[in-house]
Simulated assay, not measured.
Amino acid sequence: MSENSTATVGDAPSASPTRGPRRPSPRGAPTATIARRHRLSRLDVRLSPYLYVLPFFLVFAVIGLYPLLYTGYLSFFSWPRFGADHGPWIGWANYSHVLHDPVFHKALWNTIGIFLLSSVPQIAVATVVAALLDTTLRGRTWWRMSVLLPFVVAPAAAALIFGALFADKSGLVNQILSGIGLPEISWHSNRPASWLAIATMVNYRWTGYNALIVLAAMQAIPRDLYEAAAIDGASRVKQFFHVTLPSIRPTMIFVIVTSTIGGLQIFTEPRLFDTNLQHQGGANYEYQTLTMYVFNTANSSTDPYPRAAAAAWILFLIIVAFALVNFVVTRAVQRRSHT
């Protein structure tokens, strides 16, 4: 009995008839697998950001870059209004015509005037509103959402509202002015007055939108900075200028650049402000902007499309120049603040 049991126990380590002995894996296989996975991981980290942004650039190349390049190509040709295809190469003639057009000069100054009256106060007021919304207010969510309501209003509805406010004879603003003994203002024929009316419309729609962008940047500021400034005796005003503004400088640069681009491309507000719709920016082009000039040139009788293309490229270069000036100025201010 004991011999049989001993023999049985001794035979246990032998290979079973159903499962063969495990073969040892090659020495370099695990190392090669780890190295391959490491290379794939590094490749994924390097390429995945480009793959994420690639759809945007593909769409931009189709609906943005190609029309831009074709517009530049078309601006060097002549194209009759009812022609099937563009005519001969005429070089810089379209650009010369646009730059020597007195209507273009008026549109340029109108655009700059409306831009200065809208973007500069808009950014300043949006920053102050964002700072107020960053405090401990009751119903903060309601207040933050309410500043976005003007942006939700359709531009046509806003134009009707402000058209009633700034009507030349029966407008609410003129009624208030006459009620306090001041002379009435002809908002559609007075050039600075029309700029102010259109800028008011623009500020009404976009101030709350920019305020929420600035508020999001303020929310990301560490609260320890404010506590340290309060311990050092800094007031709320000093905290705003020495803690808040330096901390949100990148966001302010973004808001300034986007406001500059939007301000120089303004079209909807002055187009809807023109109640007559026959003069395209006033009887004497008092508030015709550059985008309205491009629109009107494209509907003219002589070489409409090439001249409109030339005007569009001039507008593009003006916007790039303003954006570069904003970038250089803000970078200079940032370097001076660090030194």
Score class of each variant (00 low, 15 high):
E3N: 13
T6W: 13
V9Y: 14
G10S: 15
S14K: 13
S16G: 15
S16R: 14
R19L: 14
P26N: 11
P30E: 04
P30H: 05
T31E: 10
A32C: 09
R36T: 11
L40E: 15
R42G: 05
L43R: 13
L51N: 00
V53Q: 03
L54C: 12
F57K: 09
V59S: 09
V59T: 11
I63S: 04
L68H: 00
L68C: 02
Y73G: 12
L74F: 11
L74K: 05
P80I: 09
R81S: 11
I90S: 03
W92S: 12
A93G: 11
V98Y: 00
K106P: 06
L108V: 07
T111R: 05
L116T: 09
S119V: 15
V125I: 15
A126N: 06
L132P: 05
D134Y: 06
D134K: 03
T136S: 10
R138A: 10
R138N: 07
W143L: 15
W143K: 11
L148S: 00
L149Q: 00
F151W: 04
F151L: 04
A159D: 00
I161M: 06
L165R: 00
F166D: 02
F166Q: 01
A167D: 09
A167C: 03
K169C: 11
I180H: 02
S186G: 10
S194T: 02
L196R: 10
I198Y: 01
Y204R: 01
Y204W: 12
T207W: 03
Y209Q: 02
L212V: 15
I221W: 07
L225V: 01
E227A: 04
A228F: 03
A229R: 04
S235I: 08
V237Y: 11
Q239V: 05
F241I: 10
V243S: 12
T244N: 14
S247D: 10
R249I: 10
M252L: 13
I253E: 05
T260P: 02
Q265V: 00
I266Y: 00
R271H: 10
D274N: 05
D274W: 01
T275F: 12
L277M: 07
H279G: 09
G281P: 04
G282K: 06
N284Q: 10
N284R: 08
T291P: 02
T297Q: 09
T297A: 08
I314S: 00
F316V: 02
I319G: 07
V320Q: 07
A321R: 07
F322K: 00
V325Q: 05
F327R: 08
V329M: 13
A332L: 15
A332H: 12
A332Y: 15
V333L: 15
Q334H: 14
R336L: 14
